[in-house]
Design a protein around this nucleic acid. Structure first.
Lengths: 177, 177
DNA sequence: CTCACTATTCTTAGCGT
DNA sequence: AACGCTAAGAATAGTGA
């Protein structure tokens, strides 16, 4: 037992961009997908809420998590967004459209500093999730982008509209009153 | 500057069960939901995959994350599970039914040791996500449960069936060949 | 591909504001 | 409520089997 157990350099920071090496990326996908599902599971248990997650791998293989089930959550989501029950406040429904895709592509091509990374990550969120301060930061980053590329208009828009909705920096936002 | 900045005892372990205190649970929900969405965002960026997440709070308010968008991912998922394109291998589609709900309730009522916790968390996963070893562990935990309660039969079952499917310990499993 | 290990980074529970 | 802080706990990149 002349153990030389020090084979690993431990966890290293990684660049927040698409992992180049195929095999490396596959490993990261497996690990992080598991981590994501575990986090979702804990959220369900600790807070007593319902969660559905759908992930499509690069090979377009679907992976799903659902509590109580994927379908029950999706059905509820569909009903909420399609028929808009007035009995519920529902102030938190918001939808993003094309922008996040654009941003992620930019993110891959040009790796700017922390500022850019932060904005592009936030851009994938439902906008209602952001604080005003975060919106300010994102807005700044987006305005720099605007000169660089053309953002296509959203091709679809779900017909739920009794509340507030607008296009904010190419991002479709909806929140019922 | 007789600074007494040591007001916090730092992070403490918490019991993996529904948080009792309402306000406490609400805070945890906000923080962990943000953490979940961030993890999802990183998964998208690092691995170049598509992800959709839908969360319903206790008050049934929807929160969503989607890349490139919630709808595009959901549409793809619907198409895959409804019409079953044969061009794709699709070995990873699996669906859970009632079991996870039952388990989570048990989890709340009786807090057994690590063994039980581990099994009930895994139970919320799509079964294809588990290794054989994990299935063994879960099976053991479930067999103990069986004597304790009645599991209702799944009330729905999506009609995609060209591959493998079975009921495994009250859990509906599907994987196309 | 899956599993184990571990140094290191990241997340978050508990408080204060 | 939302935001900042901090230390303890949890996740994971790199590595080997």
């Amino acid at each position: 037992m002349t153990s030389k157990k020090k084979g690993s350099s431990g966890r290293q920071r990684i660049r927040m961009a698409k992992i180049e090496k195929e095999s490396h990326r596959q490993v990261a996908f497996s690990k992080r997908r598991a981590g994501l599902f575990k986090k979702a599971s804990e959220l369900c248990t600790l807070c007593g809420v319902e969660v559905a997650i759908i992930v499509f791998s690069l090979a377009k293989k679907p992976f799903s998590f659902g509590h109580p089930s994927v379908y029950s959550v999706l059905d509820r989501y569909r009903n909420n967004t399609s028929f808009q029950q007035q009995s519920q406040p529902m102030e938190n429904t918001a939808t993003r459209s094309e922008l996040s895709l654009v941003l992620s592509q930019v993110e891959e091509e040009k790796k700017k500093g922390e500022e850019m990374r932060k904005a592009s990550e936030m851009a994938k969120w439902s906008v209602d999730e952001m604080s005003l301060l975060q919106l300010q930061e994102m807005r700044y980053a987006l305005e720099e982008l605007r000169n660089t590329m053309v953002v296509p208009p959203p091709s679809y828009m779900n017909p739920m509209s009794t509340g507030f909705s607008c296009i904010y920096n190419s991002s479709y936002v909806h929140a019922s009153s």
